[in-house]
Write a protein that binds this DNA or RNA. Structure first.
Lengths: 205, 205
DNA sequence: CATAGACTAGTCGATTTCGACTATACGTGT
DNA sequence: ACACGTATAGTCGAAATCGACTAGTCTATG
């Protein structure tokens, strides 16, 4: 994510909600959680205030009033600026259009999987399959339960999440099979070991 | 990713490479790039040194010598400690076993897609499809080219990457179809608009 | 009535991330 | 000879991220 003045996705959420109406940061956090946005965008209180400041500094939002209420701490209400509205829409477009490079943790794990014995790798992958399958079931029922009172438009992202997990489970099954069937391994004595035919400095053992 | 003393995936790469042999950070960076690890783990020079310091601070690696060479700047060589070896393996296991929550940028885009007109959304999604398809083709040829001299074990992560992109392309096609076929939309005058039947504060317009 | 926990709205300081920069050496082209 | 680009090995300072903490109010419970 290059060149954006503020790039934390929290800022996108802030811009989106302020597009609806002015709010103070605590309220933004509460609405995000209420709407399940915390599922797509990581919320951290410190970052929410920090991002809000950055948006102000870059004139994408501005403070419009400060409310005092004997019952509550003082709160500052922000509204989006025209520049902020523009940034929001452009950012949103680029998020939908451009498949930006991601660095999923599992990919890093796979890159170093050769450090583990094939047998152990298979066990771990199988466990991952189980956990993902549970995720899949959970997302499924959440979608069904929510579909009763939420428009499908707002379930798209859960469906995406579901699809990607299902694809991973499927691939994992295949990977496990291939490890077991000897595609990646060879027998060394009683143990099966990764098949390494290029013992050069390219990769570990 | 909770509780790890050092959690940047760069640190995992450092631990992995130092498991092979002692190296200085610049060399670690170079080897990572040479091996294509920069594809799975984001490298930033400042972070590499910072992460190295954090690993030292937490006694997962230690400096073993400082080399001076009239041609090159002074360099500090680090080696992994027993605790570092243990941490590496446990971290690796957890990366493979546990599907930790990720926050892909596209998911955030989908969460707010309702802010765009359906027509525009479709155009953007179609563009994304194209870009992803190009990624798919590229990864495919990279795998084929590399398979000639790299063991399959070391291509697993590229295959994962390929699979996930293919799944996304497929799903995108379906999503586009569903937007076009009226699943998500309704006619409002001459324009098609998102079908919103719950105009409550749950979501934007 | 007192206490504990949750809620409200934010702060704080430590750590991490980022990307430009430093300074030297070498190779290449003009 | 000079300029430029690349390689070597790292530094630096600004900004971002994180998660615990602050302080007051309200509610429920004993």
């Amino acid at each position: 994510m290059a060149k954006r003045k503020v790039s934390n996705l929290l800022a996108l959420a802030v811009l989106s909600l302020l597009n609806e109406r002015p709010m103070h940061p605590y309220e933004i956090g509460a609405v995000m959680r209420q709407r399940g946005l915390a599922d797509s965008i990581k919320i951290n209180t410190g970052s929410l205030y920090s991002v809000t400041e950055a948006l102000v500094r870059n004139q994408l939002i501005e403070p419009v009033e400060t409310l005092r209420d004997t019952k509550h701490p003082e709160r500052t209400v922000y509204a989006v600026t025209p520049a902020g509205r523009t940034e929001f829409l452009e950012w949103l477009r680029s998020l939908i259009r451009t498949p930006f490079k991601e660095y999923p943790q599992f990919a890093a794990g796979l890159a170093f999987m050769g450090h583990l014995a094939p047998r152990e790798a298979v066990a771990l992958l199988a466990e991952r399959c189980k956990l993902l399958a549970a995720d899949v079931a959970e997302i499924r029922s959440a979608i069904e339960a929510t579909a009763k009172f939420v428009d499908r438009l707002f379930l798209i992202e859960q469906e995406y999440s579901l699809t990607m997990r299902e694809a991973e489970v499927k691939w994992l099954h295949q990977l496990i099979e291939r490890i077991k069937d000897g595609t990646f391994t060879e027998q060394k004595g009683e143990q099966s070991a990764w098949k390494i035919t290029h013992p050069d400095p390219m990769r570990p053992h």
